[in-house]
Design a protein around this nucleic acid. Structure first.
Lengths: 256, 256
DNA sequence: CAAATTTGTCTATTGATATAGACAACTATA
DNA sequence: TATAGTTGTCTATATCAATAGACAAATTTG
């Protein structure tokens, strides 16, 4: 029973693996295992099926499965013990909420014991076309750019660039460095509340910058959001582009 | 340093390519070209830079670039003409809106000249755990499952499975086959309006089923949404899982 | 027409990917 | 303690991926 099971269950399952696809088999199998963990097929701390069983299941050689497992061990997802088995270390994906009032820290409450934003860099630059459009400024107007990384339990879960009107938000880089919070920084400028006006979402393979920023292994997938935050009366205050590692994060879109 | 140019522009650019990553260079370059087209770097009908220029730009051999181009020609994204150049065929990605009132047809108005939903299959089955949770039914309760494909201008842009309470929506499969519209089908059961209660979003490599369903090439990425639609008073009516080809579709999250 | 530019094809070589088989090392258990 | 089950290591072979160079074929330009 290879492909016949597709309609049998309520879940998309590992029917097969694509050869000569430009994606190596071990990478595809590593992705499958990651996904299986994410949807709860392999419980945390539980043993994976033995290598020979996985090899049969995916229709490849045992050594190919070993390459996949070896990559996941490198990533800290699995732990292999000779004679015993291979065990799942990492938890399910974080569920990052996106809605009218998207906030980093509050959204992950309950899922992680610790979370924070690190300001990596800031700069002043002329607004590019899309930034200018998003913020309702003239192209080339001065904007402040903040580069940040979100971390939860010590692991990177997001990497964002945010742009603000440099005139209105002079010094927001310092505020951000001190508070570690966009919400708190904006409060210093009299912004008590802000809303997510629009979010555009896409996905792609991680490039070199993503790999470094998010501590990913080559071949990983990133979710990309491009968003505009506005004041309650509709004035644009922030344009942002965020990247999330798809293997560690899912986005939960909440009405509101 | 490698990524020195990273802070120079407002755009994530092609700093480099990852070797021995499990993803072949030609596939990575094909992804880059797709992305460049999607964000408008290469205009429609315009010529791509010559192969030698691309090879230099990405730091690979010309033949590797040719492999990437050849894959994109297969996918119908590019057209190569000997002696002239290689040209961009496909348009930008469709922007598929997701919000409180997500509807297939209305959402794509203006972006495509033609769009419709095809009912591929339907069945009655016991509710799996997650379907039951989503619909607020007991696990194992009978549900109707509709398998559909969304097409715009003749190209697949979505592939969805939708589940409905079999008791309440007996015959919705026929309604769907006749009307080709979820909204119209639900109207027959007295549902004039419905809202998107929750959407969970993730991304992964396309598996064999995705490749067949969405007419993709191996190595492609799919966006996956899992959603629950409810009546205005909060009663769950539909649980769905949809897959979108990331190279052809982006999701636009609209407030409310 | 001639030259320059660009894509297409061919041969050859190297390294990564995948398969195959055998056996060692370690663990749990009967 | 013996046995079965599991991960770890090794050798060998075949195929795919990537590089390198040369030249043909088609198109555009001077």
């Amino acid at each position: 029973m290879e492909g016949g099971g597709k309609f049998m269950t309520g879940r998309q399952e590992a029917d097969s693996i694509e050869r000569r696809s430009g994606v190596s088999l071990w990478r595809q199998i590593a992705d499958r295992i990651l996904q299986a963990i994410a949807i709860g097929d392999f419980a945390e701390n539980a043993a994976l099926p033995p290598e020979v069983a996985l090899a049969e299941r995916y229709g490849v050689n045992r050594h190919t499965v070993r390459s996949a497992i070896s990559a996941l061990v490198q990533e800290g997802v699995l732990r292999a013990e000779q004679g015993r088995g291979t065990f799942v270390l990492s938890r399910k994906r974080l569920s990052y909420p996106i809605g009218a009032r998207t906030r980093f820290s509050t959204g992950l409450q309950g899922q992680t014991s610790e979370r924070h934003i690190v300001l990596l860099a800031s700069s002043i630059e002329p607004a590019s076309q899309r930034v200018a459009e998003g913020l309702g400024l003239a192209r080339g107007a001065e904007v402040i750019r903040l580069e940040t990384r979100g971390e939860a339990d010590g692991r990177p879960v997001s990497r964002a660039a945010g742009w603000f009107d440099a005139r209105r938000f002079t010094g927001i880089d310092k505020a951000m460095a001190e508070t570690g919070s966009v919400t708190a920084s904006l409060a210093r400028f009299g912004i008590d509340d802000y809303l997510r006006q629009s979010t555009v979402l896409s996905a792609r393979h991680a490039d070199a910058a993503d790999l470094a920023d998010l501590d990913l292994q080559p071949g990983a997938i990133v979710l990309v959001t491009v968003a505009v935050n506005v004041t309650p009366d509709g004035q644009p205050i922030q344009f942002s582009e965020s990247r999330f590692p798809a293997e560690r994060v899912e986005l939960k879109l909440s009405a509101l």
